[in-house]
Nucleic acid binder design. Structure first.
Lengths: 343, 343
DNA sequence: CGTAGATATGACTGCGCAGACATGACTGCG
DNA sequence: CGCAGTCATGTCTGCGCAGTCATATCTACG
């Protein structure tokens, strides 16, 4: 591997000037700049990242803690983060945790700190007990300020709240007497936020709160939840915390003889790409992952590079209720079937 | 930040001994090891990655080139890679490309090389023209040996071939006269492989090859393909290159008045988590992403750490055809509707 | 008891870059 | 014309580790 001095020799300048050129620093004449670039090109020279990081004290990289799942939401957010990180000129390092991992988020953060990242992104905050996560670099959390100890903690919202609210209201506006909720796993911030918004929407209309069924985001758990919901003879509207569970719910309802949306309306969350094509097409909520990631990363980079300035606040992002065929007004005559017992 | 010498001083040893302890080198007495670990713990000491990379010439990190999509296949493989990389003790750096990106895979590889990775993984090879990708570290490609110039190029298969073959055969075994194929974008290796396997399965039975409809992996493109397929009055069986497109195809067929599976059988590919819960539940093919990723990474790490030994071959992985309700024997009396014209 | 090997530790050094500072050439203006 | 300010470049240095080699101690065995 050629080094900076090799380029310098070939271009007839000092190593420092090579460094200047390759870092786009001012005070280099155009002519020298050209010579250096030509020499670097000729030798196939690349700056040595380790040496740069050691000399400058910054690694120019950002670490992200993600969940080891291919779930649409987390995967989309991760891809949004990747693009946003690259746009800021930083490199991306990824560590995943799995639910139930004993070291959890704290362990993942620790491993990123060992790698020397300049900042950390927690993409899907989940509660792994009461652990306090310590970091010596700025941290960006999507959703909620976990118990973090770090120089700067930045929070960027994904706007789940208001939209889960809107999803519930959409069902109520259609005339449903109430809305049942299939929640996500409550250790996830995203799941808690959606549950709270559903609750708030019911409360705003003075409605009581029917029992919540909790799933694990999977279609299988949605199916199980749907079987339980089907025992409710008065059921006409369901809000599921993500699309996969909504699809499972719909399948269970169909198998129980409930038509969707004729008998029961179902709303999902995420707008997965197949949502428009399943039967029936799913009413759902679309999240602007890219915009959220971009905005969050701008805050994080600001926190990294201007450690003493105040942080601007993250803007809210337009979220969108996508109404499709899985929601309709409730049936005229409620079927009034008796409540079946499980077994 | 405390440095190695600080720990050394506290433990009453030399910096070099601290280095030995933290790298688990032999020839350190148990007693000294304890003292050093205690001192490191007390100071909250962490090895400086940049300095170790500079001094040792290895960054202990592996870069992966992925596609900036949340598609189930690529996302699952990425997560499998993350786990596999972590299991080998390396750190993971991620760069994504988008289709149509002018710099393409070569640009992504270049940016990883600048970051100083010890090895590179190309998770979803796509053809970005005839570019020759150059790397000075070993490269692992999932699927196909692209035109690569690197010290070692390792290939690990995802076994798409035989299974796309099996999927087609499953339909033929049910009695269908032929099988139409909704292909993925042909720049993707995975799409070409599935197309070739479908072709081979037809040829093996001496069947002619009906025209292929190409999609872009999305349910929307599957829907468009399904509308075109619905013009074929003799259509009874479809093999789609992924589940999302299969779901789109099913929707289009339903809207065209074809029942699935009564009139037309549809097979997908990937076994996305909702496949079992859509209507009808989807017959599909499950890929062992984790196993493939683990095996591939073992090869890559071998190529990195034993540059002069021969590479063991990657084992084949069990792939699995999952038969669900979307496939059935063809209808007794073919409907024989005339071929409609589009427009 | 003497010497070869294994074991345990330290001193010194350099990896390749960017920061601090020095220096020289040039510009403009009173 | 002289001096301050800008521009352009170079010299020297150290970031914090791991590699190399030297050294000291401990075993084993003839």
């Amino acid at each position: 591997m050629p080094r900076g001095v090799d380029v310098a020799r070939l271009a007839g300048v000092s190593q420092k000037t090579v460094s200047r050129v390759l870092n786009n620093e001012p005070y280099v004449s155009t002519e020298v700049r050209q010579r250096v670039l030509a020499a670097a090109e000729q030798l196939g020279y690349r700056l040595n990242n380790a040496a740069r990081a050691l000399a400058s004290g910054r690694s120019r990289s950002i670490g992200v803690v993600t969940l080891g799942t291919a779930l649409y939401g987390p995967a989309s957010l991760l891809m949004g983060i990747e693009r946003a990180v690259r746009a800021t000129g930083y490199a991306l390092r990824v560590v995943s945790t799995v639910e139930g991992d004993p070291t959890g988020i704290a362990g993942a953060v620790e491993s990123l700190l060992e790698q020397g990242v300049d900042g950390i992104v927690i993409s899907e905050p989940i509660d792994e007990g009461a652990e306090l996560v310590r970091a010596d670099v700025p941290v960006l959390v999507f959703g909620t300020p976990l118990p973090f100890s770090a120089p700067r903690v930045v929070t960027a919202g994904v706007g789940s709240g208001e939209l889960a609210h809107a999803a519930t209201e959409h069902l109520l506006d259609l005339g449903h007497a109430t809305v049942r909720h299939v929640a996500g796993p409550q250790r996830w911030y995203a799941a808690r936020e959606r549950l709270a918004a559903w609750r708030a929407a019911l409360a705003a209309r003075g409605l009581g709160e029917p029992p919540v069924v909790e799933g694990d985001w999977s279609a299988a758990s949605g199916y199980a939840a749907g079987r339980r919901l089907a025992e409710d003879g008065d059921l006409t509207a369901v809000f599921a915390a993500n699309d996969d569970m909504a699809i499972g719910v719909i399948r269970a309802l169909l198998e129980a003889g409930r038509r969707v949306p004729d008998d029961v309306s179902v709303v999902g969350y995420d707008d997965v790409p197949v949502a428009a094509y399943v039967t029936p097409p799913l009413t759902t909520v679309r999240q602007p992952f890219d915009a959220v990631a971009t905005a969050g990363l701008q805050l994080l980079v600001h926190a990294i590079e201007q450690p003493h300035e105040d942080l601007p606040q993250a803007p809210d992002h337009p979220v969108e209720l996508v109404v499709r065929a899985s929601t309709a007004p409730p049936p005229r005559k409620t079927p009034g079937r008796g409540r079946a017992t499980s077994g």
